[in-house]
Design a protein around this nucleic acid. Structure first.
Lengths: 172, 172
DNA sequence: CAACCCCTATCTATCGATAGAGAGACTGAA
DNA sequence: TTCAGTCTCTCTATCGATAGATAGGGGTTG
């Protein structure tokens, strides 16, 4: 029960860590099993196929992100943007990792259908959050543009190993 | 010679095609060999290790991109931006694929060092092109921000399968 | 001859996935 | 209370497929 959920979560934790570095091909059942301290067959018990694991990975990532963003209705436009920006800043500064869905999104052609679908849902939800937070009178960059800028800024800053490039790119 | 260069190029072509869909883990010596119509050992003859292949892949991709961009000195700021934008629009519209370096950049933590270095060079060169093309009096988005926006727009448009999101994100 | 280039054959390591055993905990009937 | 049955979960062992990589042969060309 409690132990069960814990191991299951630790599997997802380990998978997320590796997936956010190397993408969908960047984690394997054996590696995750070693990280957690179980056998790969035990990982298969919780997630029968890799697509199952990938899908739940993205769904949990999305849930956490949306929980972090909170309720868009309670925010001013600049607060909404800053909140989403902070989500990505955390990935860069605190985690030193890519956005899971940004990476999976770039790999979308090579993903199992259900993983690609879950990844698309992340983008839809963040855009919906921004759409609501910015309101009908917003005349600045459209929500999709703001999200694109953040995903791109994460890549640029990490490739060139210069975190100031993130702030440069994000400053509207 | 001619035949040699041709097969070598065809190997790079096949590798680029696959890499731009699934990233560094998205292509294998065997797959490429089958695409080209040779054996995997022949691919190893031209590119001893996968890192060698990956590095040359990125370098050729970078060379082609810079050749497409042309000389930044001859362009106005808006021409320079439009030229770079068109480079990414081609990836989306014409190729229906990611930017190779955008994808590799997202995977940077899992790449062999020389491939990661070559990927970083792509970003440096495009930023240098924009820096030169925009000139010292440019007050709009900094070069890194423009590049970030384009890489991100490519991801967003492809994940949500909506090419208008690219134009939305790109419209400054 | 010698260089260039592709081949056959093969290696070790790892991949995702499966079968089946067994440990432990809970449940309901005797 | 005890015992049989069942469910949950991890294990050992193994499958076929594929990964990157290598050794060595042979054909073609200059």
């Amino acid at each position: 029960m409690t132990t069960d959920a814990t191991i299951r979560d630790r599997i997802l934790d380990a998978a997320e860590l590796r997936a956010r570095k190397g993408g969908y091909g960047g984690f394997s059942f054996r590696e995750i099993a070693e990280d957690v301290g179980v056998k790969s067959s035990s990982v298969h018990y919780h997630f029968p196929t890799k697509a199952d694991l990938g899908q739940e990975l993205v769904e949990r990532y999305t849930q956490r992100a949306m929980a972090y963003l909170g309720d868009a209705v309670e925010r001013t436009p600049s607060e909404a943007i800053e909140r989403v920006t902070q989500l990505f800043r955390n990935a860069l500064m605190r985690d030193d990792k890519m956005c899971l869905c940004g990476l999976f999104g770039a790999e979308r052609d090579a993903l199992p259908a259900e993983v690609a679908a879950a990844t698309a849902e992340f983008f839809r939800l963040v855009i919906a959050y921004l759409t609501q937070g910015l309101g009908p009178n917003w005349t600045g960059d459209p929500p999709a543009a703001i999200l694109a800028r953040l995903e791109g800024a994460l890549i640029v800053a990490r490739v060139l190993e210069d975190q100031t490039l993130f702030e440069q790119s994000v400053r509207a």
